[in-house]
């Protein structure tokens, strides 16, 4: 197990290094270079040269990459002149809040999607299945900004029970102190996730319910409830585990559209505004962080898989 972990961590490291190389290259392939991007169109050639010299951008690329990696290892992702704060600082202000929103919506999605998928599988090709399938497809096909707008119109205009804006607090505690404001963004985010997850659960459950081992379970005279809950559910949840691993990067990146729509000061909004203002240090910093989260997410999914599926688990020494 330890050996496997080391191997997988080694692989993850290679991917992360490649990501930094790509990020570095993008930074330096910008037209006019980072200096122009940072100082803007009005900057004089002297200013550009001075900036480049200060930042070490006039040195050879290899050396520059070495410096970039050194800074990265020290936890220095660069400095945003637009926000006038370091990238790390900008991210660390927003990441916890984004995680609150993402976690809430993910938990909500899982709690609802699994039973919905199971009901669809058990009642497949009958009206509950058709109804949920139709709603899922509708939710899946609706653009998320439209969904969010509908939410705002319905629940804060037509029937004003919830605020249209997410909590504006500066810290996680302040955000959590305003739960009403979290409801609409959480639900909006969750709806699409529910649609996707319930489809996965449904198809995995349908496949499993057609397996021979389910027939064996029925031959033991078990109730349908026990057949589904004790025998099939565990095997039907494997795809969800894989999805959860892939969800980790989303936890970090936040939801661009929803955060903008509800004016939630999270990672998505940070990224969105950085893109508009061509704030490259922020864009690259966020990209590197998300890449690492992606790699770690895949690793976590594999480990979770091994935890729930004995066939993947390490052979015990005896047999």
């Amino acid at each position: 197990m330890v050996r496997y972990l080391i191997t997988r961590l080694g692989q993850a490291l290679v991917v992360v290094v490649l990501v930094t190389v790509i990020a570095f290259l993008i930074l330096h392939l910008l037209p006019g270079g980072a200096a122009r991007a940072t100082l803007g169109k009005e900057a004089t050639l002297e200013q550009l040269a001075a900036f480049n010299h200060d930042m070490g951008y006039d040195r050879p690329w290899i050396q520059q990459y070495g410096m970039y990696v050194q800074r990265l290892l020290r936890g220095d992702l660069g400095y945003s002149y637009q926000l006038n704060q370091s990238v790390v600082e900008a991210i660390s202000q927003r990441l916890p809040k984004t995680m609150v929103l993402s976690l809430l919506s993910t938990v909500l999605a899982i709690v609802l999607a699994i039973p919905l998928g199971v009901i669809q599988a058990v009642r497949r090709n009958r009206w509950p299945d058709y109804a949920i399938t139709s709603l899922s497809l509708l939710a899946y096909a609706t653009p998320i900004f439209f969904m969010g707008l509908m939410m705002i119109i319905l629940f804060s205009q037509v029937w004003p029970i919830l605020p249209p804006e997410a909590p504006q607090g500066f810290t996680v505690a302040e955000v959590l102190a305003d739960p009403a404001g979290l409801v609409l963004p959480t639900i909006t985010l969750a709806i699409v996730t529910i649609a996707v997850y319930s489809r996965y659960v449904r198809s995995a459950m349908v496949d499993n319910l057609n397996e021979n081992y389910v027939r064996t379970a029925r031959s033991k005279g078990l109730s349908e409830r026990r057949v589904v809950l004790r025998h099939t559910l565990r095997n039907g949840l494997f795809p969800v585990i894989a999805l959860l691993g892939m969800y980790l990067p989303a936890l970090f990146s936040g939801a661009l559209v929803v955060e903008s729509l509800f004016n939630f000061p999270g990672m998505g909004q940070l990224f969105w505004q950085a893109a508009l203002k061509r704030d490259f240090p922020i864009l690259l910093g966020v990209t590197v962080i998300i890449s690492i989260a992606t790699v770690v997410g895949a690793l976590v999914a594999d480990l979770l898989y091994a935890a729930v599926d004995p066939r993947v688990r390490l052979q015990r020494s005896a047999s």
Binding site: E211, N212, Y213, R215, T216, A217, R218, S219, K220, G221, L222, H231, R234, N235, V308, D309, P310, R311
Partner: peptide, 19 residues
């Protein structure tokens, strides 16, 4: 079905719950 009867199926590789 559970107590008075028992059934054995063809394919032992798929007839048991893998997990």
């Amino acid at each position: 079905r559970g107590v008075r009867m028992g059934m054995v199926f063809q394919d032992p590789l798929t007839s048991l719950n893998p997990t």
